[in-house]
């Protein structure tokens, strides 16, 4: 059997329910990620997405099961896994640049000061913050902070990037801009990314596959949905792809109608689905076939 880059096997998390019993948040979570894949996970609030991500990060421990990356079991946090937290988690007494320098120094302790600085500046530039190098987080807007946080994670070039709702606290406009930036950086670096989101459009824009989680307690990763849209993608044009709509309809239907009852395969691995299989094999549709509502949607999102 060929081993995947990341293998998650039989993960579950049990908390005491406060009345002497136990509460199984999720159980028997199994999935694999390949090198260079971008995978989003969607599920209703409280089903345990953050917990799974924290277990992958090594910040939390699962009640059962294990995580193997590159053939090595994950036990505790490590530099080969970078995390972008929902609340940015920048060190407030350091400037934007020094927050990144801090991470880069930790990653490559032998580098010279100049090299560290140059490398850090390059990543800040990548997220369009070269004008705000010397500002403290408190002097940055929410969107700018999240950019610093993303730059920090990419700058250490981890083998696996873990993003927990990185844009959750941002307004729609800012969110769109940073999504574009994330797409751009990812096209450049092709890092393996595991990301939590609540936003179906965001998931389609970014991912190769989307994991769908059923509702808790006893939540599972029920399905793994392939996003059959070629890279590079752009927020402004992705609506023109018919595969986009098929995929979106499928995801929304799952979240609205089926997340309560959906189950994975008998062996516990997520069901693999390709909602856009037919359309992606026919030739891409011209812009003329666009409906009015799509044009409107694009105008809003542009």
């Amino acid at each position: 059997m060929s081993k995947s880059f990341l293998e998650v096997d039989g993960l579950s998390k049990v908390y005491p329910d406060g009345q002497g019993g136990e509460l199984t948040v999720f159980e028997d979570i199994r999935f694999a990620l390949e090198k260079g894949e971008f995978v989003c996970i969607i599920g209703h609030s409280g089903c345990g997405k953050s917990t799974i991500l924290n277990v992958l990060a090594g910040l939390d421990e699962a009640s059962a099961g294990n995580v193997v990356m590159n053939g090595k079991e994950v036990k505790g946090p490590g530099l080969e896994r970078g995390v972008v937290f929902q609340n940015y988690s920048l060190l407030p007494w350091k400037t934007a640049l020094n927050n990144i320098v801090f991470a880069v120094q930790a990653r490559w302790p032998k580098w010279s000061k100049e090299k560290v600085k140059e490398h850090s500046e390059r990543y800040l530039k990548m997220v369009g913050l070269d004008h705000a190098l010397n500002r403290k987080p408190s002097q940055l807007s929410g969107g700018m902070r999240q950019r610093v946080s993303i730059a920090r994670a990419f700058a250490t070039q981890p083998e696996l990037l873990l993003l927990d709702e990185p844009f959750g606290a941002l307004d729609a406009l800012t969110r769109g801009v940073i999504q574009d930036e994330l797409v751009k950086i990812w096209e450049e670096t092709r890092q393996t990314v595991f990301m939590i989101t609540h936003d179906v459009d965001e998931a389609i824009l970014l991912s190769d596959r989307i994991f769908l989680m059923s509702n808790g307690p006893n939540a599972r990763i029920a399905e793994s949905v392939k996003v059959d849209i070629p890279h590079p993608r752009a927020r402004a044009t992705i609506f023109q792809n018919p595969a986009y709509h098929k995929t979106r309809d499928y995801l929304v239907d799952f979240l609205v109608n089926r997340s309560g009852s959906a189950l994975p395969e008998k062996d516990g691995s997520p069901k693999f689905v390709e909602p856009a299989r037919d359309v992606s094999q026919s030739k891409p549709v011209s812009a003329g076939s666009e409906t009015e509502s799509e044009t409107a949607a694009r105008a809003v999102n542009a």
């Binding site: 990060a57 090594g58 910040l59 505790g76 946090p77 490590g78 530099l79 896994r81 970078g82 995390v83 937290f85 988690s89 060190l91 801090f102 991470a103 930790a106 990653r107 250490t156």
Partner: peptide, 9 residues
């Protein structure tokens, strides 16, 4: 912040 330190080993 402690987690930031932990993830950076």
């Amino acid at each position: 912040w402690v987690n930031v330190a932990r993830t950076h080993e």
